[in-house]
Every structure is written in structure tokens, then in C-alpha cells.
Amino acid sequence: MTNTLIFVDLATDDPAAAGDFYARVFGWENDARPHGIYHRMVPGGFFQNKDGSDSAIGNLHLGIFDAGNARPHPDPAGVEPRKLSSEGRKARIWILVGDDDDHNRILATAEELGGTILWRNHYWREFNGYNHAFADPWGNEIVLWVKAGENPAVPDDYTRE
């Protein structure tokens, strides 16, 4: 397969704190490489086959880099810009909530650790999923995806599209 997506990186001004945030919110391994410079969040496990068994494909990782000196780069001092983007739209990261977790716990933990709830309780019929979103303390937008299943009973308080 050509041009395979392997990582998505989030910018922060404190990679160690961001690594701890994502480890606590999602239960992922915080793999500092090296600590405070770049953190690789390791969800663990494998993508599942249709029958629920593990496939040979490991889950993608999320990288967290220091906006002040984004590595790797040929110049050891890095280059501008050295600050977090604060205006306009940014990339969004979509997280499929596992059957053994709950979007309410995730949102509450994110908020407790300094995240901001952006919206919740939305059903997207096109992809048959319940969605909720928060911004991490560095402004990155995270959208939660909860499988709705066959013939979903969408709660009355959910918006729909």
C-alpha cells in the first residue's frame, strides 16, 4: 500500500503535560521519546475484524510535539512559528470510544484536567454514530465517536443530521 497514514501529531507548549492528559483521559500509554520533547501516545491493541477478532493491523498512534521546537527538523534550533495556533479551524482528531469505556467519563476527565467541552449529544446518521467533542488544554479539538449500532434509538435530547 502506498502513502500510508501512520501518525497524526498535536502541537502543545508542554508535551509532558499533554502526554499525561491523554494517558489519563483515554488510558493510553504515554511513550516519551524523549520526555518533554516528543510524546507518542500508544492506544494499544489492534483493529478488529468484522467477527470481533484482532486483525494484524495495530492501532494508529498519536504524536504530541513541542510547538516551540517541532522535531524532527534539520535545524536543531527549529524554525518559526514557535507558538500554538489560536485562531480559526484546526485539524480534528476522531476517537472511537471503546465498548469498555464511556463518553461521559472521557468528557468529565478531560474537563477535570483543563479541557473544554465543545458540544455533546449529536447523532450523525450518514455514519451512524453518536458524537461529542472537547478541546484539550492546548486548543486541539477531539471528537468522540460512539457506535450507534443497528436500528439506533437516538435519544430525544440529541441533535441530528
Score class of each variant (00 low, 15 high):
residue 121 N to K: 08
residue 159 T to S: 13
residue 68 G to R: 15
residue 50 K to Y: 02
residue 58 G to F: 11
residue 146 V to I: 06
residue 35 H to Y: 12
residue 161 E to R: 10
residue 147 K to Y: 10
residue 140 N to Q: 14
residue 37 I to T: 09
residue 21 F to I: 10
residue 81 P to W: 03
residue 35 H to C: 04
residue 104 N to G: 04
residue 40 R to D: 05
residue 140 N to K: 13
residue 10 L to N: 00
residue 105 R to W: 05
residue 21 F to W: 04
residue 26 F to K: 14
residue 35 H to G: 03
residue 9 D to N: 13
residue 111 E to L: 05
residue 107 L to S: 01
residue 18 A to H: 08
residue 90 K to Y: 05
residue 53 S to H: 01
residue 15 P to Y: 14
residue 41 M to Y: 10
residue 50 K to Q: 07
residue 114 G to Y: 07
residue 74 P to Q: 11
residue 134 F to A: 03
residue 86 S to Y: 03
residue 50 K to S: 07
residue 36 G to C: 02
residue 65 F to G: 06
residue 13 D to M: 13
residue 132 H to R: 02
residue 114 G to W: 02
residue 25 V to G: 07
residue 112 E to A: 12
residue 139 G to K: 03
residue 145 W to C: 14
residue 151 N to A: 14
residue 69 N to D: 10
residue 101 D to I: 05
residue 115 G to E: 00
residue 56 A to M: 14
residue 115 G to A: 03
residue 102 D to F: 02
residue 84 L to V: 06
residue 120 R to C: 09
residue 4 T to A: 11
residue 100 D to L: 07
residue 55 S to A: 08
residue 99 D to Q: 08
residue 107 L to N: 11
residue 89 R to C: 12
residue 130 Y to C: 00
residue 17 A to L: 04
residue 64 I to Y: 07
residue 129 G to H: 04
residue 46 F to V: 05
residue 118 L to P: 02
residue 88 G to Q: 14
residue 51 D to W: 07
residue 144 L to Y: 05
residue 80 E to T: 09
residue 35 H to E: 15
residue 60 L to W: 06
residue 98 G to C: 05
residue 62 L to Q: 12
residue 70 A to Y: 08
residue 105 R to A: 14
residue 18 A to N: 09
residue 69 N to I: 00
residue 12 T to P: 01
residue 129 G to R: 15
residue 119 W to N: 08
residue 111 E to Y: 01
residue 111 E to Q: 15
residue 71 R to Q: 15
residue 1 M to W: 08
residue 56 A to W: 00
residue 156 D to F: 00
residue 156 D to H: 10
residue 118 L to A: 10
residue 155 P to W: 00
residue 1 M to T: 04
residue 89 R to S: 11
residue 136 D to N: 02
residue 82 R to I: 01
residue 53 S to D: 03
residue 44 G to H: 15
residue 69 N to Y: 12
residue 124 W to Q: 12
residue 84 L to G: 06
residue 114 G to S: 09
residue 29 E to F: 08
residue 128 N to A: 15
residue 88 G to A: 11
residue 88 G to K: 12
residue 43 P to C: 10
residue 134 F to M: 02
residue 56 A to E: 09
residue 68 G to A: 02
residue 41 M to V: 06
residue 18 A to Y: 02
residue 117 I to R: 10
residue 41 M to S: 05
residue 24 R to A: 13
residue 78 G to W: 13
residue 15 P to V: 02
residue 13 D to R: 13
residue 51 D to F: 11
residue 95 I to A: 06
residue 79 V to R: 14
residue 60 L to C: 05
residue 142 I to A: 03
residue 8 V to Y: 10
residue 35 H to R: 13
residue 108 A to Q: 02
residue 63 G to L: 06
residue 139 G to C: 02
residue 106 I to E: 15
residue 119 W to M: 06
residue 146 V to A: 03
residue 43 P to R: 12
residue 125 R to V: 10
residue 137 P to Y: 07
